[in-house]
Design a protein around this nucleic acid. Structure first.
Lengths: 226, 226
DNA sequence: TCTCGGGTGTAATCAACATTACACTTGCTG
DNA sequence: CAGCAAGTGTAATGTTGATTACACCCGAGA
């Protein structure tokens, strides 16, 4: 804590001794927490993998909870950064949605991301602040980006749109539906890129046209793409 | 009181001494597990609340895990039974979807259901069979019912439909999106009936018409209902 | 070189439980 | 009423793992 703040003020310090220790601890903690879960993870095990000593671990993070939070923090930051959705502002909806859908789904299906999510959900009772922080730093960012994109597309006349945030939420959730929420509960669900693509395509289609589509007058016109 | 209960229950089922003990244990276990989580829950605490003795608890369930599974089993059975979706086979889609959406969402938003889900997700690593069982006995049942309903509606010509299961999954997931998945991560999200209704309506609309709706030719004709 | 502050290893502490053991009650059933 | 099968209370047993204490070590500045 104090150490971190001190370093923060000194701009761009190149990884001092302590920082390296800290990074090693966090990396090991990530491994162990993900493998064993919060309760079952043992501090000694973490030290074993990180090298260094138990004493140093405690002096750096205070206690188990502190270590956990530090680890989660670093991890969520890292994941959402990676997901930095590059929505080239003027891609046509269908294409744009497919792209973001793929990116989102693939990321969330990574075993590590799944496990992290399980951890967070499971600890919601014990540390209520954690999931909230996670929401803000993770999903909300993506949602915001997607909403902006949808607004842009609306202005381009491609879609009707009453509530961009709601719509963005819906899309992301639909995206998760087919695979992610199943994978969350079943380790053995491990879709490959093709399955993901297929799932995303269906979602995009449904999101755009709904289940009814041009019903009264099937022949009129098609959406640019296909 | 005890006598009365004994007689009353004897009419329907035997409910022997042991059965009552068992029920009491399970009820207490539910409380404690939900409040404290699996690891933190203590067997003694459960006995404390249930009355009876530690020895009996062990003789009935073997060990902690056994008790947990028995509890979960009873609970999931109970919840999904309650949710017994009465889709009067020929309700018009819009009405039918609203109804099932309300029922589903309301149920899942109950604090206890949320907590149960958190438990299950959090334990996916430790007991991989549990979430699978849960899927089969819970969500899959609902999904099946909804799929059947959608097929019926298709045959009535109300909707286009390529993959009923996928569509059913999508609908249920969309339904969860707005509120449930948020509530899962934030204890303080406690929508009332009106909010739920609003959320469901939007979902139904999106599910049916998509985000584009009759765009090329707005004036032609409307879907039977309204 | 001497000295100090973080680092390091190792070995205590200390509490919490799960799980068992044991000796004692009860409530039927014949 | 005897006897047994299940239930009860209480007190072990044993393990596990967070957290702390302690004695030692190494690299930078006086």
């Amino acid at each position: 804590m104090t150490a971190a703040q001190k370093k923060a003020s000194q701009v761009t310090e190149p990884l001092s001794r302590g920082d390296k220790r800290r990074a090693a601890f966090i990396a090991a903690a990530r491994q162990v927490f993900l493998e064993q879960g919060y309760e079952a993870a043992s501090m000694s095990e973490i030290v074993l993998r990180a090298g260094g000593s138990l004493s140093t671990l405690y002096s750096q993070f205070g206690d188990k909870q502190g270590l956990f939070i530090a680890m989660l923090d670093a991890r969520v930051r890292q994941i959402t950064e990676t997901m930095g959705v590059e929505l080239s502002a003027h891609t046509p909806v269908e294409e744009g949605l497919r792209r973001i859908g793929m990116q989102f789904t693939s990321k969330l299906l990574e075993p590590e991301a799944l496990e992290m999510y399980r951890l967070i959900v499971g600890l919601a009772r014990k540390f209520p602040e954690i999931p909230r922080e996670f929401q803000r730093r993770g999903p909300d960012k993506i949602r915001q980006a997607l909403a902006d994109y949808l607004i842009d597309r609306k202005e381009a006349g491609e879609i009707r749109l009453e509530d961009p945030y709601r719509a963005a939420t819906l899309f992301l959730e639909m995206t998760r539906s087919g695979l992610v929420s199943r994978a969350l509960l079943d380790e053995e669900v491990r879709p490959d890129a093709e399955e993901i693509r297929a799932s995303v395509n269906i979602v995009v289609d449904m999101f755009l046209h709904g289940i009814i589509r041009y019903q009264p007058d099937p022949g009129s016109e098609k959406t640019a793409k296909s």
